[in-house]
Simulated assay, not measured.
Amino acid sequence: MNPVQKSSRAMRPSARRQDVFLAVGLAVLASVVAVSFGSGRRPDAFGWALLLALHVPLAWRRRAPLVVLWVMVPLIATFHEHDYNHSAPTGASMVLLYTVAVTGSVRRTVIVGCSVIGLMVALKFGDGMAGVAESFQIAGWVVSMLVLGGYLRVHRQLTATALERAERAERTREEEARRRVAEERLRIARDLHDLLAHSITLIGVQTSVAAHVLTEDPDRLDRAAVAKALDDIADTCRSARGELRTTLEVLRDHGPADTRDPLPGLDALPDLAATARAAGAKVDLSVGTGASVPAAVGAAAYRIVQEALTNAVRHGGRADLTVRVGVHERDGALLVDVTDDGAGTGDGTPGFGLVGMRERVRSVGGTLDAGPRDELGERAGFAVSAVLPLRAHGEEGAR
Rank of each mutant, 00 (worst) to 15 (best):
R330E: 12
H212N: 13
I304W: 00
A160M: 02
P294L: 02
V102Y: 01
P65D: 10
D222H: 04
Q306F: 00
A268R: 15
L334Y: 00
R61Y: 02
V147E: 02
V32N: 04
A229I: 03
K6L: 13
V121L: 15
V147D: 00
G351Y: 01
A59D: 01
C114A: 15
I138P: 02
D231P: 01
A295N: 06
D253P: 08
R63M: 08
R173P: 00
T90F: 11
L285R: 00
A333E: 09
Q306W: 03
S31I: 05
G342W: 00
S135V: 07
I200Q: 10
A160G: 14
L388W: 03
A300Y: 07
D19I: 00
G40R: 01
L66G: 04
E249R: 11
V327D: 05
R260S: 08
G255K: 08
Q5E: 14
L388P: 07
A308Y: 01
A257P: 10
E396T: 14
A370N: 08
R63E: 14
G40S: 07
R63P: 02
S31M: 06
S31Q: 02
V226S: 05
E176N: 11
S36C: 11
P264F: 06
L50Q: 09
N2I: 07
E184N: 15
L22M: 11
H193T: 08
R245Q: 10
V355F: 07
T90G: 00
Q206H: 00
P389H: 06
A268F: 04
H193N: 08
